[in-house]
Write a protein that binds this DNA or RNA. Structure first.
Lengths: 328, 328
DNA sequence: CCGCACGATGACAACGATGTCCAGCACCAG
DNA sequence: CTGGTGCTGGACATCGTTGTCATCGTGCGG
């Protein structure tokens, strides 16, 4: 900046006035300054600026499980859009479902003085966030609630969705329904299992623990379970899968079976409509989750100090065929 | 920090020593300081620290077309991993293929003093980056080259891949092959078209401009073109699609046709193996692109000042069935 | 018993930018 | 000619942190 001032023959302060578009600068002087800026390729240091002005950093921290998962990348995009509308950018980090890594990432973001945090929490303990929140960094939890603190949260109706999946299958005559869910440590997995049980209860289907598998996540593991459910003594005629990745694995597993069970998956995914048969899913919108969270955060940044909110976004069952196969 | 110093009864400099783990602090003093830090929930301001130390910001800027596109989100993840290995984070921004937006994002990132930039460029003009690069911000272009400057670049073998697609189809007896590509403004689209022509030449197939469509990107538009190619006077028996999104649309379009043409898609995508028929693709690895770019960038950050490099990553044809349908 | 090295601590400036406040200057009305 | 007014431009402090250097005991070898 002082280089620019020297080249333009003015003081540093005048340069500052020009880059900040302050009105009280002679047009001619401003032109000289701009020319010098252009010539030297000067760009003001936003970090220093924010430090001096005490203004916010203009960065939102987004901590999620894995940006590469299409579900989260959709959410990321939605957050980015809303951040952009207020002139902010998004710093992303993947926790890989690892509590320590989540914590490390999050605190690092705080040290960078992000304006706010949006988190898909990996762990159950978030006490470490309390000082940050007290210091004024708003935090919004998405998809899963915080472990042991109260904070803004945006969830989807996991229970209702899983129950609806069972209801749908029951309406097509199924009574032996298997559930393949994510690891029980994960909030959404527990909730969806609970919804599954509720759905069974509503449909008058006795809950059979042999038809529940939580946690497998490899193609091999899931194939084995699907075979066991369908071909084993439990004789499942239908399956509910607990998330998009499990669904995909289940679809692959089913393709190799002599008798194909009906299937309803939790989470929508691209091409579900093009598979054979097209996969019926409990859909919910990653965009909507991201937008809701970002909007909540923005409200906090605008000064909303009301009590922490918990939103639950609706899901909808999208019948495409795979859930409508009747039992043999 | 001064609050911590006051509470611990030491000078501000001693606090600094403690948070920086400098050895020459009495254990007892350090303990007092740490207690005060804990008590006040102090976290040092990384921005101020970097300003004072003149050290790098520890942030990599990643400008791409759309984080929500699985192809780019995979790339993002790969970049994140390599950034993490050197203690850095990733600031992402979507340009939506808009040149101005790209420029705005990029310069904003520069003003934040990112350590380096990785860009999937939207436009053809990147002169605006010259001052930044001269100022020492390394820039790596990925997937598409820079418009009018020389810089590190990582590409995939678009020409070879598209030619291989034609060769594959020709080997199965096809002579009337249609090409649906992205808009011609996009580098990869042009390259792939060029590869398509080369492939035709190699196979002794006369190039028919009526069988080329560049730019349509809606389901309706693509469906119309596919119908025209296959059912119209040109009577295409096979199609090559220019990117993952077009492929998906083409698959949908084909599903509604009385006679299904063979298909090879450029870009692999999840579930391609589960469609009916499974889609043969020219695959290349988003991870590999991201890693290569990030590694190049890291080398620059480690002081590599050699001439700009251009890497071309190989592609491979993954036959799954859709390209092996013989012509009727 | 002196001086010296060494460990521990603090005062101060500086990173790059901006807010505050004041001085200079032209211009105009009185 | 004077004082006010409206612009401009500059000196200085400051944001939170760290590098440099100085200070101050204290223990130890000579």
């Amino acid at each position: 900046m002082s280089d620019v001032a020297r080249l333009a023959g003015v003081s540093i302060k005048t340069v500052s006035r020009v880059v900040n578009n302050e009105p009280s600068v002679h047009t001619e002087t401003a032109a000289k300054v701009l020319a010098a800026i252009e010539r030297l390729g000067f760009r003001r240091n936003l970090g220093a600026r924010n430090l001096r002005r005490g203004s916010s950093s203009g960065i939102i921290g987004l901590v999620l499980e894995d940006v590469a998962n299409p579900f989260y990348s959709g959410l990321t995009r939605a957050v980015e859009e809303i951040a952009r509308a207020t002139g902010r950018h998004v710093l992303t980090g993947s926790s890989d479902e690892d509590q320590d890594r989540e914590r490390e990432l999050t605190l690092e973001f705080c040290a960078r003085r992000v304006d706010g945090l949006i988190m898909i929490p990996a762990g159950e303990r978030h006490g470490y966030l309390v000082p940050e929140m007290q210091a004024g960094t708003p935090v919004v939890f998405v998809d899963r609630p915080a472990g042991d603190i109260v904070a803004d949260t945006v969830l989807v109706d996991n229970i209702g969705g899983a129950a609806a999946a069972v209801t749908h299958l029951a309406a097509h005559g199924h009574r032996k329904i298997g559930f393949l869910g994510d690891a029980e440590e994960i909030f959404t997995a527990r909730e969806r299992l609970r919804g599954f049980r509720e759905g069974c209860g509503n449909a008058g289907i006795p809950f059979d623990p042999r038809l529940v598998a939580m946690g497998p996540h490899t193609q091999e593991g899931i194939t084995a379970i699907v075979r066991e459910f369908v071909l084993g003594p439990t004789g499942a005629t239908a399956l509910v899968s607990g998330n998009n990745r499990i669904t995909v694995n289940v679809v692959r597993a089913i393709a190799g079976l002599p008798r194909r069970p009906a299937l309803v998956g939790f989470d929508d995914f691209e091409l579900a409509d093009l598979l054979d048969p097209p996969v019926t899913v409990v859909a919910h919108d990653a965009d909507a989750l991201g937008s809701a969270a970002a909007n909540l955060l923005m409200a906090r940044l605008d000064g909303d100090t009301s009590a922490p909110k918990r939103q639950t976004l609706p899901v909808r069952l999208v019948p495409r065929g795979s859930g409508e196969t009747p039992p043999p």
